[in-house]
């Protein structure tokens, strides 16, 4: 294989898409050709640059997409037999001890209504000063036609309220703190963290931000949590969490923010962390920041 043939195969070689024999021939050629080896290096750099241009969908975009999709699906015409059969199976499973359906189905509807109404009362005690508007969404969950021509429905109702209040009002803060832990919707978690971060001077809120930074599976939420913690970057608990994140978070964006915030105050306690980090970190920017900080503190890069 000559250089021209090898160079024409390098792009597919880098993607691992050559046939076995072709790959063997390229590797043999590379062993003896410095020019083609440097072409491989050049194209590898080019690949890395392209990797950096990849876009990650913001959490809020994904959340918006999901919400809209499910709303549109609810409006889709249902293929009667199939979809009703699920509820029939559910109803069959739920029927307690063979009690006739006409007895328990209206009772079930009443219970569902009571749960919906009661939970809204439990959630928000009546003392808050927030303004509110209410909307009730009804959804038919089970249909049973009767021989008489009448029909029985089990209706599930979701009561929605619009609350408007200040962040320091207890019901608002409590709901936001609960929303931060809502596993079903990262978009809501991002927005909750964003709102709480604007008024993070209570210990409860700071703890929620620290927990989100340590544990939230979504990188967008973790980035927002770091942003909210910026005013408290010098507190020991925040620094401990940032250190933990720097060493363990799998997202380079989060680690970048963590190293920037941690390096606002260069203290000897981070020397060991930075040395440990340099042994495993592959992100160029984080490595550079760590080296700069170690040099500024007259510390070596390696451990002995």
């Amino acid at each position: 294989m000559n250089c021209e043939q090898a160079k024409s195969l390098i792009p597919l070689f880098l993607y691992g898409e050559l046939l076995f024999d072709e790959e063997e021939a390229v590797e043999t050629h590379l062993e003896s050709c410095a020019g083609c080896r440097s072409e491989v290096v050049r194209q590898t750099i080019w690949h890395r640059a392209l990797d950096r241009a990849a876009l990650t969908p913001p959490a809020a975009l994904l959340a918006g997409c999901r919400q809209e999709l499910m709303a549109r699906i609810r409006q889709e015409p249902r293929t009667g037999g199939k979809r009703a059969s699920v509820w029939r199976r559910l109803a069959g499973w739920w029927n307690p001890g063979g009690i006739p359906r006409w007895v328990w189905q209206p009772a079930a509807a009443a219970v569902l209504l009571a749960i919906g109404f009661g939970s809204s009362r439990l959630l928000i005690p009546g003392s808050y000063r927030a303004t509110e508007a209410e909307r009730v969404e009804s959804r038919v969950r089970y249909i049973e036609p009767e021989d008489s021509g009448r029909v029985q429905l089990v209706v599930e109702e979701t009561r929605q309220r619009v609350l408007n209040g200040r962040l320091d009002e207890e019901p608002i803060r409590r709901l936001l703190l609960a929303a931060v832990r809502d596993p079903s919707d990262p978009g809501v978690r991002v927005e909750s963290i964003n709102a709480l971060g604007r008024d993070s001077n209570t210990r409860e809120v700071r703890q929620a931000l620290l927990n989100a930074l340590r544990q939230d599976p979504n990188a967008g939420v973790r980035l927002k949590a770091i942003e909210g913690l910026k005013p408290y970057a010098e507190e020991p608990e925040t620094r401990r969490t940032l250190t933990e994140v720097l060493l363990n978070d799998d997202n380079p964006g989060v680690r970048t923010q963590a190293v920037d915030l941690l390096m606002r105050r260069r203290e000897p306690d981070v020397v060991g962390v930075l040395q440990q980090l340099l042994q495993k970190e592959d992100n160029g920017y984080i490595r550079m920041r760590s080296r700069q900080a170690l040099r500024a503190m007259n510390a070596s890069e390696g451990t002995f």
């Binding site: 990849a54 876009l55 990650t56 969908p57 913001p58 975009l61 994904l62 997409c65 999901r66 999709l69 499910m70 699906i73 609810r74 249902r78 293929t79 199939k82 979809r83 009703a84 059969s85 699920v86």
Partner: peptide, 30 residues
Amino acid sequence: QAGDDSAFEELVHLHDQNVLRLSLNLLRSP
């Protein structure tokens, strides 16, 4: 396929991040 919408939602959640990433990177427009 049998009509369980919550199963469909779960199925969507298994794939939708990749779908959104693919379309966002291809179209470069949210």
